[in-house]
Amino acid sequence: MVRRVWAGVVVVAVGVGIVTGWAVMDRSAAEQDLRSAQDETTSLAQQQGQFRDVRTTESATTLLEAAQQVGGATEVDWSATLRSVQSKLPSGVQITGVTVDSASATEAYAQSDDPLQGQRIATLTFDARSATLPSVPDWLSAVRGVPGFVDANANSVARSEDGSGYAVNMTIHLDEKAFDDRYAAKKD
């Protein structure tokens, strides 16, 4: 019985020795893997440091593009809009003056207190000269084709002081469809 107990103790001691040896070898391998991973991380950090300027430039470019999108979000191509207005007017009518009031990137456009008037982002008021007495309803109907058109009204129609024709003052309100979206985010 004593021999069996001693044999059991020896078997347990050998088993503990084997498990201990295996644990030491496993720990040693894990430490070596950790050192290897740390060396690789250090190497990658050094390589990444070489491209710090590129990463900074990419970040700055992204920021500038976002600023450009915000700043240009309320941009209207006034040249194209005026060409569109001119094309809608009867032949022989010349635009002689223009006043523009529009939203900015930091401030929304003030809306009318009149609930019957539509939402708008800009007002285009222009003076025009016509050789003949204008048909105001026809003019108001014609400018409906201007991109972003909300509404229009003729502020005044007067005969020129020299008798050479008529002077018309007209206002056109535009909505967000008038934005040119030149700096809008590109969709992939």
Score class of each variant (00 low, 15 high):
residue 3 R to F: 07
residue 5 V to E: 06
residue 6 W to K: 08
residue 8 G to A: 14
residue 9 V to A: 15
residue 11 V to E: 07
residue 13 A to W: 12
residue 19 V to L: 15
residue 22 W to I: 15
residue 23 A to H: 10
residue 24 V to N: 11
residue 25 M to S: 15
residue 27 R to K: 10
residue 28 S to Y: 08
residue 28 S to Q: 15
residue 29 A to L: 13
residue 38 Q to S: 13
residue 40 E to P: 03
residue 40 E to S: 12
residue 40 E to H: 10
residue 46 Q to S: 13
residue 51 F to I: 09
residue 51 F to H: 13
residue 53 D to E: 11
residue 54 V to K: 06
residue 60 A to G: 02
residue 60 A to V: 07
residue 64 L to N: 12
residue 64 L to S: 12
residue 68 Q to V: 14
residue 70 V to Y: 04
residue 73 A to V: 06
residue 81 T to F: 00
residue 81 T to E: 01
residue 82 L to C: 03
residue 83 R to L: 10
residue 84 S to C: 07
residue 86 Q to M: 00
residue 87 S to G: 12
residue 88 K to I: 03
residue 89 L to E: 01
residue 91 S to W: 01
residue 93 V to E: 00
residue 94 Q to A: 15
residue 97 G to S: 14
residue 101 D to P: 03
residue 101 D to H: 05
residue 103 A to E: 10
residue 105 A to E: 11
residue 111 Q to G: 04
residue 113 D to P: 03
residue 113 D to G: 09
residue 114 D to G: 04
residue 115 P to M: 04
residue 115 P to Y: 05
residue 117 Q to P: 00
residue 117 Q to W: 06
residue 118 G to W: 01
residue 118 G to P: 01
residue 120 R to V: 12
residue 121 I to C: 00
residue 123 T to R: 09
residue 125 T to P: 00
residue 126 F to Y: 07
residue 126 F to L: 14
residue 127 D to Y: 03
residue 130 S to Q: 04
residue 132 T to N: 04
residue 133 L to S: 06
residue 138 D to I: 03
residue 139 W to N: 01
residue 140 L to Y: 02
residue 140 L to W: 02
residue 143 V to F: 01
residue 146 V to K: 00
residue 146 V to W: 00
residue 147 P to V: 10
residue 151 D to G: 13
residue 157 V to K: 02
residue 158 A to H: 06
residue 159 R to S: 14
residue 160 S to M: 11
residue 161 E to M: 10
residue 165 G to P: 01
residue 165 G to E: 04
residue 165 G to Q: 04
residue 165 G to V: 09
residue 166 Y to T: 05
residue 168 V to S: 02
residue 168 V to T: 07
residue 168 V to C: 02
residue 169 N to E: 12
residue 171 T to P: 03
residue 172 I to A: 02
residue 175 D to T: 06
residue 175 D to C: 06
residue 177 K to S: 15
residue 180 D to Q: 14
residue 182 R to W: 13
residue 184 A to E: 10
residue 184 A to C: 05
residue 185 A to I: 15
residue 186 K to G: 11
residue 187 K to V: 15
residue 188 D to V: 13
